[in-house]
Design a protein around this nucleic acid. Structure first.
Length: 489
RNA sequence: GGCGACGUACCCAAGUGGCUAAGGGAGAGGUCUGCAAAACCUUUAUGCGGCGGUUCGAAUCCGCCCGUCGCCUCCA
């Protein structure tokens, strides 16, 4: 790799140089959604953040295998050991099969992510598709003495795993004393967590197992599926900071107890999206669904808004803040449109090792961008360097000197690579004209009528045309080299 | 109660020991324009929650205080 990168590792609580298990390859697992409801902005932040991380790793030359699960069983409400299965609860409410609920919200999730420009993971394994692997893992844990069966349930014995708490900085003793629930008779220790749950009569989702019919606990699926596809030790495991404990702590315990090997080298946790300063969550009910947010804001604006803060910082969602981000993104969009208009669109791949310093110092801006991205994926800083570059590009575009075609091509391909391919913040439909020649001709006809009116100093008529076009989302701009238009919606 | 973060201009948000505290939005002035829009130029924190301390030097390290949030029950 030409570039060293630093990653903040939750395990060590500091930034570390990234060294993959296998040279030039990265295995990454990110906790996916439990599909019992539509996704909200918080999911957007999480998956956009990891999408950029994966894209950047690929950009600098790594071959990345990105696995992100779909949890479709075992995730319980309220209390990890007492509550209902979230999906089954929804299914009962609608009187449908739980798998219908899963299908509806899994599709909804991918739709939303597609609109946010999130590239699909290489593998999206589902928990219900890996019951056998989960049972095998549980059997291994029992045979090694880390887990025990009790009345058809299987629990992980946290006292047997000495490093329990190493990720979240907790001690088993503290957890015990802090437990308010009455000690369940079938658990040895209140901090023990369920690997397998007995299916009570009437429970729909159930599978046969050595311990009777039941279903897997919430944490096992991630251990079973991540290790199945990425190996028993892999590079990066990501997820929301709210999953640090207990979910990821339990994953470590299960996996390392079963294999005797280190589970994950770099743990990455993204911070939460808040609304009026309070964490946005499905259970709190204060979440903004992505589908609703899309009605107000272009998805690419939301993506840009998300990337304007660091993935480890909390992000407070407000209409004002997103609108501001949208205004800012227009600066980028305008430059891309101008470059395309001047014939800059092309398939050129910039040679990042030999960038020019004139007329725009691409060498410097690339260096700044790369340094920012390499330092724990500092997207806000990377975006700042892009905006400084945009200012220079605008300056040369506005200057009297006409830029040669190859310079225009390079500027365009440079922006497309950094802002588009990696950050994904160039709207997909930026174009110099509409996609309809008749529309273009009609608009240009009005522009000609307006120009004639201006020549005759009939400004009332000219302004009327401009106002009317603007109300249709067509913005008229008088430039040195003539009048042009752009579509603003 | 235990553990962990955070508090930077009107708003969003980088910066974690040392040039004039990034970038975006908003505001003000200017260039261009018939007027706009877009773009560019100038400008808006002698200051980084407060008070002490360490240091030649701190937003950045340490202590205390105030405030906000997260996890400890499900959550990206």
């Amino acid at each position: 790799m030409k570039t060293d990168i630093q990653i903040y590792n939750t395990l060590s609580r500091q930034k570390e140089k990234f060294v993959p298990v296998e040279k030039d390859k990265v295995g990454i697992y990110v906790c996916g959604p439990t599909v019992y409801n539509h996704s909200h902005i918080g999911h957007g932040k999480s998956y956009v953040s990891f999408d950029v991380i994966v894209r950047f790793l690929r950009f600098i030359g790594y071959k990345v295998l990105y696995v992100q699960n779909i949890t479709d069983v075992g995730h319980l409400t309220d209390n990890a050991d007492e509550g209902d299965d979230k999906i089954e609860k929804e299914a009962r409410k609608d009187r449908v099969n739980p798998m219908e609920i899963v299908e509806v919200f899994m599709r909804s999730y991918f739709e939303d992510m597609d609109r946010l420009g999130v590239e699909r993971p290489n593998i999206s394994p589902r928990a219900t598709g890996h019951i056998i692997e989960q049972i095998e893992l549980i059997k291994a844990l029992i045979s090694k003495g880390f887990a025990y069966e009790s009345k058809g349930n299987v629990y992980f014995n946290v006292n047997k795993f000495k490093e329990y708490g190493k990720l979240s900085g907790r001690k088993v003793e503290d957890l015990m004393s802090g437990t308010r629930e009455e000690v369940r008779t079938d658990k040895k220790n209140p901090a023990d967590f369920a690997l397998w749950k007995k299916a009570e009569a009437g429970h729909i989702m159930r599978w046969p197992s050595p311990w009777g019919e039941g279903f897997p606990g919430w944490h096992v699926e991630c251990s079973a599926m991540s290790m199945k596809y990425l190996g028993s030790t892999f590079d990066i495991h990501g997820g929301g900071i709210d999953n640090q404990f207990p979910h990821h702590e339990c994953e470590i315990a299960q996996s390392e107890a079963a294999t005797g090997k280190p589970f994950v080298r770099y743990w990455m946790h993204n911070n939460m999206v808040t609304s009026n300063g309070m964490k946005m969550s499905k259970s709190a009910g204060n979440f903004v669904k992505l589908k609703d947010a899309f009605k107000k804001f272009d998805p690419v604006v939301l993506r840009f808004f998300i990337l304007q803060s660091h993935y480890r910082s909390p992000l407070d969602f407000s209409d004002e803040a997103v609108s501001g981000a949208g205004k800012g993104l227009e600066r980028l969009t305008n430059v891309v449109r101008e470059l395309k208009k001047h014939g800059g669109e092309n398939d050129l791949q910039p040679d990042f090792d030999n960038l020019p310093e004139e007329p725009v110092d691409l060498k410097r801006y690339y260096g700044e961008w790369l340094a920012a991205m390499s330092d724990d994926f500092n997207t806000p800083l990377a975006i700042a360097s892009l905006f400084e570059m945009l200012k220079d590009v605008n300056s040369v575009l506005a200057s009297e000197t006409l830029l040669p075609a190859d310079v225009l091509k390079l500027l365009y391909s440079f922006i497309r690579a950094l802002a588009g391919d990696v950050l994904g913040i160039i709207p997909g439909d930026v174009r110099a004209a509409t996609d309809d020649t008749i529309q273009d001709d009609l608009i240009n006809l009005f522009i000609k009528l307006r120009s004639d009116a201006r020549t005759n100093r009939d400004f009332a008529f000219a302004d009327m045309i401009r106002t009317e076009l603007l109300s249709m989302g067509i913005s008229i701009e008088d430039k040195k080299d003539g009048t042009s238009f752009r579509i603003t919606r």
